[in-house]
Structures are given as C-alpha cells and as structure tokens.
C-alpha cells in the first residue's frame, strides 16, 4: 500500500478502469483506497463527474461504509475483533492491553504514524478466538504478547 498523493490523472485512471462494471462506485472507492491507502478528497469530484453524481452524493456513499478512509492510516493497521465470540475469549481485555500499550484509542494512530488500531466485527475466526489481523496477516488465539511481537518486528 502506497500512502502517496496521487495526481488527478492517477485517480481518473483508477476510476476509468472500473467503468465497465454495473454499479461501479464501490469498486472505484476500493481501487483508489487499495492504491493509495485512503480515498483523497480530490477524488470525490472526479468520481462524481464520471458517474453523473454530486460530490455530496459520493461523499454520502463513502461515509456510509466503515472501510473507506479519508486520510492515510498508520504504516501498520491492526484490526482487533470485538464481536461476541472473541469477547467470550477475552477480546475486551486484549484490546484494552493493546490500546493502552500503544497509548491510543479505537481508530487512533500512534504519533509516529507507525500503527493504527481499528475495530472489526468478526473475521470468521470465531472458533480460534480472539482474532486479529495485522496488515493481511491473520492471527488466531491472539494475545497481547503475540501482537506486540508482530509489531516489534515491523518498522
């Protein structure tokens, strides 16, 4: 994931690449976020123009979904599952420990821009709870030490 500042041409290319799809808006937002780590403000008028919508409408769609970010996240995104099966195995204590250690709250990023922690509601790992995801690495039966260790190893 690059946290770059794309030009309008970059963005337009990502938009155009999805235009053959029926209902292209979500695929467009995903494509931009995948390429740039977030959906920059500058993308909204371009998307709106291409899809014949108002920028407010595009913003309305984007803000409905938890996945889309307006600003880049930290270099490492930790997702901690907060749903019931993970709670039954101590997810609340785990997330408290992880957040305390990093000194941030849900959705927060450490001041050095290294780590963002986000809540997720189920990763489908409910039989090996509590579950976490760091980048695209899944962790079952997660504990604070394991998450620390994964983050220690990452710059």
């Amino acid at each position: 994931m690059r946290h770059s500042h794309p030009t309008s041409d970059d963005l337009q290319a990502l938009i155009d690449a999805q235009m053959s799809l029926e209902g292209p808006l979500l695929p467009i937002l995903h494509a931009i976020q995948e390429a740039h780590g977030h959906v920059p403000e500058a993308a909204l008028p371009l998307i709106a123009e291409t899809l014949n919508l108002t920028p407010a409408e595009v913003h309305g769609v984007m803000s409905f979904y938890h996945d889309f970010r307006k600003a880049p996240a930290g270099r490492h995104v930790v997702k901690l599952c907060r749903a019931e099966a993970c709670q039954s195995m101590g997810a609340n204590a785990l997330s408290e420990a992880v957040l305390d250690k990093l000194g941030i709250g849900w959705g927060g990023t450490t001041p050095d821009g290294r780590v963002t922690v986000e809540a997720v509601y189920c990763l489908g790992l409910c039989a090996c709870a509590p579950a976490a995801m760091i980048g695209d690495r899944l962790i079952g039966r997660a504990d604070a030490a394991r998450i620390d260790a994964e983050l220690e190893g990452a710059a």
Partner: peptide
C-alpha cells in the same frame, strides 16, 4: 456478507 459473529461456514 457473513457478518454474524460465530459464523464461518460461508468463508470455509
């Protein structure tokens, strides 16, 4: 969309 906690049959 399998959002229910405790379910993973679709994923599997």
């Amino acid at each position: 969309d399998e959002g229910d906690s405790g379910t993973f049959a679709d994923r599997m």
